[in-house]
Amino acid sequence: MSAQQNTKPDHVKLIKKLVFTVVFMFGFGFALVPLYDVFCDITGLNGKTSNSAASQSQVVDVDRLVTVEFIAHTQGRLPWTFEPEIKRIKVHPGEHHEVNF
């Protein structure tokens, strides 16, 4: 406890422990990479996408009608005009449509 009795070697022992902690935590940061995968595997939580394409619904829902509105902006004082040709379109969910800008 006394400061007088604490000489250099005492420091060295403590510093070694602390430096080991630093190195260990640096390694731990990298260990999180495989640990993350393992954790997701075991628990089945989250994880990566399955790499298979999601199937798209081909059914057009004719009972519902949704309104889609289009806007466009140009940055600052650019000498352009960039606008949608039609401002608003009503479509059935699942339908394909093309709109020009």
Partner: peptide, 24 residues
């Protein structure tokens, strides 16, 4: 001392992902 090394690890991974073709 517990978390600054983890930050160092994170920036290192960003560095290698950007310049050395790793894919963390």
């Amino acid at each position: 001392i517990a978390v600054m090394p983890v930050l160092a690890g994170a920036v290192t991974m960003v560095l290698t992902d950007k310049y050395f073709a790793t894919s963390f």
